[in-house]
Design a binder for these strands. Structure first.
Lengths: 243, 243
DNA sequence: ATGCTTAACTGATCTAGATCAGTCTGCTGC
DNA sequence: GCAGCAGACTGATCTAGATCAGTTAAGCAT
């Protein structure tokens, strides 16, 4: 797999004009490829000197545990996404990362990253851009949990994952494969699993989306966009600094 | 005011070892000083080619508007914080920024920033670090709204602002001046203003905190930490990349 | 001095979503 | 062939927090 074809380079390249030199540096960042099984955390809050990864295949979730035993899933990562970048910058991990499926991920060494910044400052800006995009998604998630009701939250979530997956060729306007259980959806959306079940049924009965057997199917895309108050364009940011 | 004394340089310098050259570059970033009155937005979602600022004095809030007319405040910024960094990277603003008080802020030009990255890659890493710290705060906010009840949310929020203000010398263990109205707290915490009022009263009656007349007073700091399930250390990240 | 506005505050009522307590499937292991 | 278990699903009940409809007090403008 060349840098030009990895989901990560594809995602960055879609938004910022990187030269061949920068693609080469990018490629050399992927030092070692690892495979992790589903369900066993690959990063724990408080762990130090953890390395970062770029996800090549599979889904993972980043979450935080609360003393009460509940957890809040902050975000899901799909192929092409960074895993644990913040944990590297802070030297100690501030969240947990659990593979939702079996995953393949390339390790990114902290030193390689900082050296790459010296070689090509443009890449630094590109990574900053990628980090900001992650932050924008967390912000959107925050807004959803704070001010949307359960139905809107679910609708918005399913659309957002669709939009993100489409960028890496894993979704169409029709739908996508989604390996998440209703329990995970509950932990992500700040709902109970029971209520997730009801909301999914309601959305299905309204003829908007069907989520069954690991498959999300958009039955009425535009209708769903309406109930979700989804801004189709918020993921299509361009990187002005690298033009 | 020299770079060594600006809240921004102070904050960065507290965590990453920057050389004099880097401090100089930092200082030159503050190009023009502006004053904005309270209440009138200085940045609107969708606005293009907006510049970023570094806040020198006063408080601002970053928020998103929902079609229903409600809003969600994503975060408050205090002296030393970046304003609208994401909006520069994306070229178009993805949120609104409203000064809570009269503020002073230094404009940071996008080109200066990218040029600074070329001169001193360390500074790029430092800015990436600062952006990641912002993201960590949004994550913590998300967790609070998703999984904490109203009392815990409020307690956590008041403690977090205290911790942040202490870093720039604007708070002590006793308390701090806080210019936020109960309406703003409601928009930040995903509650109604009515409920904010009740929760503040309960916390006061429990002898934990008093928030009255623009002043937050910690009546029982440790007790408050307990009900908030506050992790005192989550703001104390060191930047390993610049050691 | 008398409105006008903005924020703090309160009681009464309502409701979205939690919690409790299950059932029903389809696996995996033995 | 059946126990054990996870995930999807459901009805009944409960509650945290929203919503509605106010009052009170502090500026500040005319």
């Amino acid at each position: 797999m060349t840098a030009l074809h990895s989901p990560f380079a594809r995602k960055l390249g879609a938004f910022v004009a990187l030269s061949n030199i920068e693609f080469d540096v990018l490629e050399r960042l992927h030092s070692r490829r690892h495979v992790f099984p589903a369900g066993r955390d690959i990063m724990h809050e408080g762990q130090v000197n953890q390395s970062a990864y770029i996800l090549a295949s599979g889904w993972v979730c980043s979450y935080k545990l609360l003393p009460g035993g509940t957890r809040q899933i902050v975000d899901f990562q799909i192929p092409g996404d960074f895993l644990g970048l913040r944990s590297v910058l802070f030297r100690t991990a501030d969240h947990n990362i659990e593979p939702v499926t079996r995953i393949e991920a390339s390790e990114v060494l902290a030193n390689d990253l900082i050296n790459a910044f010296s070689t090509t400052p443009r890449l630094a800006a590109a990574v900053l851009w990628a980090a900001s995009r992650d932050e924008a998604m967390v912000v959107e998630h925050l807004v959803g949990i704070g001010r949307r009701d359960a139905k809107g939250r679910m609708a918005h979530f399913l659309l957002e994952m669709g939009a993100r997956l489409k960028l890496v060729g894993l979704a169409t306007r029709e739908g996508y494969a989604c390996p998440l259980s209703q329990y995970m959806l509950a932990d992500a959306l700040g709902l109970s699993a029971v209520h997730v079940n009801r909301v999914l049924r309601e959305l299905r009965e309204d003829g908007l989306v069907t989520f069954q057997q690991g498959q999300v199917t958009f039955d009425d895309f535009d209708g769903l966009v309406t109930v979700a108050e989804f801004d189709r364009h918020y993921l299509d940011h361009e990187g002005p600094l690298m033009k």
